[in-house]
Design a binder for these strands. Structure first.
Length: 809
RNA sequence: GCCGAGGUGGCGGAAUUGGCAGACGCGCUAGCUUGAGGGGCUAGUGAUCGCAAGAUCGUAUGGGUUCAAGUCCCAUCCUCGGCACCA
């Protein structure tokens, strides 16, 4: 007799649902564990293998932690606002909410067919008014805290489709992904978030998190803190000065020219009459450059001279002021002092335009030759003194400190910090998102809605096509736009909507208290569930969703409405499931694997086990179809142990099988705690092999194997659990413990090496010290034979591992 | 260009602090079993040489440290992922 998954899986799924076995108890005395997977966007395409993988991982973690006695919060919901749905709505003329409903139902059905342990009473949907009411409410809180503002910002405009397209809809070559026509930049006034105000806190907060070091580094680099100085340069013949930011104030004596961003506000004023035209022309040219052109790795430097000069505050030299698009208006002050000798970009620019290069730093002990490239390392300052400042002979860091001190004394500059992080554009000119709870009164002033007026819902319309002015479709719906302010006077609504990040920025909080109608989540529940203990998601969201969430969370913490400083204590990045050929799954290559078909053919348990066995969670793994047969065999063989009732004995078994059981429990426990599912499953396969060899199989051992296996194959284990005569669900069983006494071996096999090369393996008593082990081994005839005539110079004896004889050659 | 991760049999992948490389699985080979099979069981399986015992080589490449290196150090090459002139 062999296990057959058909009917069994559906039967248990129904049974678990009927018994509400995954119901989360908010009031339980157990220690909590919050296990979260990035929730899906319910697209029309249904679940793909990547979804199945990530949800299989969190389900294994959740079930394992439940076995260990934790009260586990393992929720699921829908990130349901989004562009594909809206685009589909535009095309088909169906309301996005209808499409979403259909897609959610399909996703739900697929997830259910995999047997995941979700408490569906906690399901959330970011596009439901009950949910986005709180998204709007949180936005208002953050607005009142002064963290939002409106600003002219460029958007991608597709002139063919007459719509604003999001960055993710623009292909790498700058074309719109749907119509493949070029997009252009248009400026529109839109809502922003002052995430930069939290740059320092977001940086510091990383220290206390158990994230992979590489992910922390990625966020640190993205925030991009740099410490340096702001220095003022007076512009000759104008009553104006330029402030620049530099991380290298030590090289100020080597500043031979200055560069402003083409958009810099002073450019027009200071350009000389004879340069005015070419300056204007250059400005126009760089304004037309799309983001594509700018990112096109063109190391070739362009720029023009403004005709104006500034004075180097340290040596009084007149230095020309240029404009060039390698200087960005959006970073620092939009102006730089150029030190070509010690900055790669400035060096290239100076070479291109034959500008002077003055060396102010020399590598110690290296003769002072002409530079072929900028010298950016540390060394000794030269050519750097004026009447009351002398940097010569100092190293880079000493010179930086000394210069800043001098600048501060003379009020010519000060120490300064800059961040690479930019403020966050928080608006879409689209329909299918959260409307801003904002109106503009008759005098054009902005007013917030009252909390009691939330949710502000989307109007029912028949067309979702954005207007050809670039405004959101909401702008053309008079019933929506025209409203009254708090005094009953005519007012107009904001017609932009929030981006998809809005709903996902705080969903992990809502899961703690999903049905609360008084608050987005009560303090009591937040304290109960604390931080997300393990958050499984992709690296692609690291500098977007993961950072945005941390920002909202921090800001809400400062407002006293959130209990913890940080949302995600640990992050685990799942790797991609690639096609069998090792390349990304894609329709065009035709290597896409459909999970539904696999579940139908092999059952959910086998699909889940295979995903976990293929390799480490974090690794990109090619999909391995033949692995499914191997896993199916593993499941069948395990079932046979249980069907062979005549070999059962009471207890955990005897002899080798008993030792194997306890060894396995110990190793599997360690693997599970480190989320090393592939090796955990390998160890269980070894245990299976050992049990199969045994004539008598302890029922206890079979039960323990089933508990260890059930986080991966819950249906199968549940069925076998009942066959062994157990009452109640295996999902509620306690994780097995190992006993040290079974792990103590009285003999160990060690390696005997000569000059580090393995010669033979011998058994020695366990627990010997190095000298004892050496004596025992040396006394063995087989060892003596190998050593015959050798002159032993040294012996390395590692207890229980090996013994290495170093002999004279 | 910069940053990050990685490179181990025919394949997916194992290998706490340097301590028996290749766990587990796939595939392959042979045998047994079965009326049959993408079935079950047993044994073998890094490469080369050898009838064998055994020997030599072997974790991208080249050096180094060490009694001992997949693991540590230096240099180089390749693959994948991310960033894009951030002063």
């Amino acid at each position: 007799m062999e296990y057959n998954f058909k009917n069994t899986e559906a039967r248990w799924q129904k049974n678990w649902a009927d018994q509400s076995i995954y119901k989360v108890d908010d009031e339980s005395d157990k220690e909590k564990f919050y296990c979260l997977a990035q929730f899906p966007y319910p697209s029309g395409a249904g679940l793909h293998m990547g979804h199945v993988a990530i949800y299989t991982y969190t389900d294994a973690i959740a079930r394992f932690k439940t076995h260990q006695g934790y009260e586990v919060l393992h929720p699921m919901g829908w990130d349901a606002f989004g562009l594909p749905t809206e685009n589909h709505a535009i095309k088909m003329g169906v309301h996005p909410a209808e499409i979403t409903k259909k897609n959610v139902a399909n996703f739900r059905k697929q997830l259910d067919s995999l047997g995941f342990s979700y408490d569906w009473d906690r399901e959330i949907n970011t596009s439901h008014p009950d949910y986005f009411k709180w998204t709007q409410s949180i936005w208002m809180k953050l607005h009142e805290a002064g963290l939002t503002y409106k600003s002219e910002m460029p958007v991608n405009w597709c002139d063919t489709c007459k719509i604003v397209v999001a960055n993710e809809e623009v292909d790498a070559d700058g074309t719109h992904e749907r119509c493949h026509n070029p997009t252009e930049q248009r400026n529109m006034k839109q809502w922003m978030f002052k995430i930069t105000q939290y740059a320092e806190q977001l940086l510091e907060g990383l220290d206390e998190l158990d994230w992979p070091e590489s992910s922390k580094k990625a966020q640190r680099d993205w925030i991009g803190k740099s410490i340096g100085a702001e220095v003022q340069f007076n512009i000759n013949a104008f009553d104006e000065s330029l402030t620049v930011f530099t991380t290298r104030p030590d090289t100020l004596f080597g500043a031979t020219y200055m560069v402003l961003a083409p958009e810099h506000p002073l450019v027009e004023k200071i350009s000389s009459a004879e340069q005015k035209d070419i300056v204007k022309e250059y400005q126009n040219k760089s304004a037309r450059k799309s983001s594509f052109d700018r990112s096109e790795m063109n190391t070739e430097k362009t720029g023009v001279f403004t005709g104006a000069y500034a004075t180097n505050p340290l040596n009084g030299a007149d230095i020309p002021i240029w404009i060039a698009d390698y200087v960005l208006m959006s970073y620092g002050t939009g102006a730089i002092m150029a030190v070509p000798a010690h900055d790669t970009r400035d060096f290239e620019f100076a070479q291109e335009f034959k500008l002077p290069i003055i060396r102010v730093l020399r590598e110690d002990g290296v003769p002072d030759e002409d530079l072929n490239e900028a010298f950016t390392g540390d060394g000794m300052l030269i050519n750097s003194s004026n009447d009351d400042l002398n940097l010569n002979g100092l190293n880079k860091f000493k010179a930086i400190d000394t210069t800043i001190q001098w600048l501060e004394e003379k009020s010519l500059g000060k120490k300064a910090i800059n961040y690479r992080l930019r403020d966050w554009i928080f608006a879409r000119q689209r329909y299918w998102g959260e409307p801003f709870p904002v109106i503009y009164n008759e005098s054009g002033e902005m007013e917030l809605l009252k909390e009691s007026d939330l949710p502000l819902t989307l109007p029912q319309v028949s067309s979702y096509q954005p207007t050809d002015t670039g405004e959101s479709p909401l702008a053309s719906i008079d019933d929506f736009v025209n409203t009254t302010d708090n005094n009953g006077k005519p007012a107009m609504r904001e017609t932009d909507t929030m981006p998809q990040w809005a709903g996902s920025c705080w969903y992990y909080l809502r899961f703690m208290d999903p049905n609360n109608s008084e608050a987005f989540a009560s303090m009591a529940r937040q304290k109960r569930w604390g931080r997300v203990d393990v958050y499984v998601g992709g690296t692609e969201h690291l500098n977007l969703h993961d950072l945005y969430s941390r920002f909202w969370h921090r800001a809400l913490y400062d407002l006293g409405v959130v209990a913890e400083k940080e949302p995600f204590q640990k992050i685990l990045h799942q790797g991609m499931i690639l096609g069998a050929d090792g390349s990304k799954m894609s329709k065009s290559i035709g290597n896409v694997v459909n999970p539904d078909i696999l579940i139908e053919k092999y059952g959910a348990d086998v699909v889940r086990l295979n995903l976990c066995f293929m390799g480490p969670v974090e690794a990109n793994k090619p999909w391995n179809e033949t692995g499914l047969d191997a896993i199916r065999r593993f499941v069948s063989r395990t079932s046979r142990l249980i069907y062979e009732k005549e070999k059962w004995i009471n207890g955990d078994g005897e002899g080798d099988a008993l030792v194997a059981l306890h060894k396995t429990i110990k190793i599997v426990l360690g693997d599970m705690e480190r989320y090393r599912f592939n090796t955990a499953i390998a160890r269980m396969m070894e245990l299976l092999n050992a049990l199969q060899k045994a004539d008598k199989r302890g029922k206890g051992a079979l039960e323990k194997l089933l508990i260890m296996l059930s986080p991966f194959a819950p249906h199968f284990c549940e069925e076998m659990w009942q066959l062994l005569g157990n009452e109640g669900s295996v999902t509620r069983a306690s994780y097995p413990n190992f006993e040290e006494k079974y792990l103590v071996e009285d003999e160990v096999e060690i390696a005997v090496q000569i000059l580090g090369k393995l010669k033979l393996r011998v058994n020695v008593a366990a627990g010997l010290n190095p000298q004892e082990q050496q004596d025992v081994v040396l006394a063995m005839p087989s060892v003596q034979e190998k050593l015959a005539g050798a002159n032993i110079k040294k012996v390395i004896s590692v207890p229980g591992r090996l013994i290495n004889f170093v002999i004279a050659k």
